[in-house]
Design a binder for these strands. Structure first.
Lengths: 118, 118
DNA sequence: CAGTATCCTCCTGGATACTG
DNA sequence: CAGTATCCAGGAGGATACTG
């Protein structure tokens, strides 16, 4: 695996992960297992149905999640992480770890700023 | 560090890294050390000056890189990774690793498709 | 229940020209 | 050399209404 900048493949991973709701959707499926469309919607109160469907479809197209349709009325659709999708977990963990530390750092900086002012 | 989806901090990290040219800029600075504006431009043939400046400014604002200006004519400006920026390396490595494997996987899939057709 | 179908807004990124 | 200043196109994401 070449590490020279010219051979950068970071964007290949970013393409998959980037999307307003993709990381949080992946965390739900990774940590809580299979979920129905409606359950995800309930856990993501601010997402619209259109966006939820769109993000799920994009993840499905890349084999990150699996979509299982039950032909019944009313319809039932279940989403789950694929093995391949699970391979993203170290990346998501690393980002969550860094992100947690980053927000800490930011609030500390702001505290210092406020001290200076007062 | 809570790992429940509701406490997701992945986006905090994504915000910093996402940007058409940020990952590759970071790799250059991480792996080749301090660089002048013009050197980066030369290594990134397709970037416009406006975009290069914009991406660098955004990284600087987050303390990921440092900008050092030499007051002389003609001007000289050097960019380098900060210690804090270096803390992103595990994330970038993980994404590069995953991304390399992902493009391999994709080309294998395409090969299978072509076999089926012919 | 789990979607489509429209319409709309904003923001990212690019082309191009100019400057201390 | 290392930037600004404009102008512009495309796409991501959202609001809302409808449907098998």
């Amino acid at each position: 695996m070449e590490k020279k900048p010219e051979n950068c493949r970071v964007d290949n991973a970013l393409e998959i992960i980037v999307g307003k709701w993709k990381p949080i959707i992946l965390l739900h499926l990774l940590q809580e297992g299979t979920k129905r469309h409606g359950e995800l919607k309930k856990n993501l109160p601010d997402i619209t149905q259109k966006m939820l469907t769109k993000q799920l479809r994009e993840l499905e197209k890349e084999d990150i999640i699996e979509r299982k349709v039950y032909s019944q009325i009313p319809p039932k659709v279940e989403y789950s992480i694929t093995d391949y999708g699970r391979s993203l977990e170290p990346i998501l963990d690393a980002m969550h770890h860094w992100g947690t530390n980053h927000s800490l750092r930011k609030s500390q900086k702001e505290a210092i700023q406020n001290d200076k002012i007062s």
